[in-house]
Nucleic acid binder design. Sequence first.
RNA 1: GGCUAGUUACCCAAGUGGCCAAAGGGAACUGACUGUAAAUCAGCUGGCUCAGCCUUCGGGGGUUCGAAUCCCUCACUAGCCA
Length: 425
Amino acid sequence: MNKQRNDASFSHILDELKWRGLVALSTDEEALRKELSENSITYYCGFDPTAPSLHLGNLVQLLTMRRLQLAGHNPLALVGGATGLIGDPKPNAERTLNDKATVSEWVSRLADQTERFLDYQGPNAARLVNNLDWTQNYSALDFLRDVGKHYRVGKMLAKDAVSARLNSDSGISYTEFSYQILQGLDFLELNRRYNCVLQTGGSDQWGNLTSGTDLIHRVEGSSVHLIATPLITNSDGKKFGKSEGNAIWLDVELTSPYAMYQFWLNTDDADVIDRLKVFTFLPRAEIEQYQQKVEAEPFKREAQRRLALEVTELVHSHAEAIAAQDAAMALFGAGDIRSLDAKTLRSALNELPNAEVSKGSLVVDALLATGLCESKSDARRAIEQGGVSVNKTKIDSESAVLDDVLPGNQAVLARGKKSLAGLFF
RNA sequence: GGCUAGUUACCCAAGUGGCCAAAGGGAACUGACUGUAAAUCAGCUGGCUCAGCCUUCGGGGGUUCGAAUCCCUCACUAGCCA
């Protein structure tokens, strides 16, 4: 974290955020610019506990917060102990409620995770807040009188998140409809408690973001600010942040450093420069050099390698990033895996999903044990399609057994080109 | 509270008594070509002790030799009426 800094070639933090493509929408830009340059302001961004870990979408917000912190402003990381119990309206369908114990467990996990990305020490240290603190003892009657009275239903219905659901055939519950009020209340409360005057968030949350500025304007008569980051999208139109259909999590238990590294390494040429801007602290000059490299010699994939190393280090650690990189080189490198020494191979395999197996057992069972395949049918299908190999030798029979053991009592099992696993005998 | 329409696999969606493990599209996965990229083409996507068997079409019950399909009931969703 000590190495992180903003690019000094930008005279204003807002210019850097814009160059990095982090500003999709904002409230009055001139006023915001003035506020940011004249004062050390307090700002916040909320994270709802909808899962046991934050994911890459949240990382965009965390890094945006960090950049503002590096510019001398004071972050409030808000965990949604209350809003997580309600759930913001997703475009397609109503959420199923998670029980309170689960949400509370997730809140503490997310809170811990924010510590890796924001500095909780020093002169403009980050502070952690939980919206359950000001909502759990709020009576429904007081809430309706004090807060509800400031909301007009017509305006609430007009918000994208709500109207999309009203026009869908799944409808929307009063619970999710009310979400925007809770988020508005958060901003008001933080404005009163900490003089918080800026909220950041994803542009898909714009309706919920403006809920707060509107409420503060009505109640306090003051104008506060918003920055909405764009939704990160892939140039091929696919959803960002998923690998083989699974989300990329920041929690090491859910997504290994190796998987994280691989995810970034596989970034499209068309997207890699945008990703470097958003997900790393590399300065503009350096990123522009990578841009030239992508154009001149894309097959070297230098930008992807750097991106993978930087983000893996950011989320995990330097040592783990290097280990992931070494594993990738060992397993995908030009050399024959048979020429690797046992120790190097072992450490690479430890980065992968792996399993204990016995010599002579079925390859199908190994595919299942390592999690490379979900069922035996799946495993047989994969073999039939020619997608399975052991130690880079294709398996051509469903009844094949494990008989090729590398030095150190280990083997490399592969499904397709990129899904690898370690086998230990 | 009443009426009407609906609930099908990861998502959308067809199927309205046997030819249904269930069309089509999206998405994922595998192969070819590549650079662990994109695009394109091809294959493939319930499970198992795999020429066979088992479980699945909102839940439960029933009719029938046979039900995703018909009947009853419950739950949920939408629209209209009150």
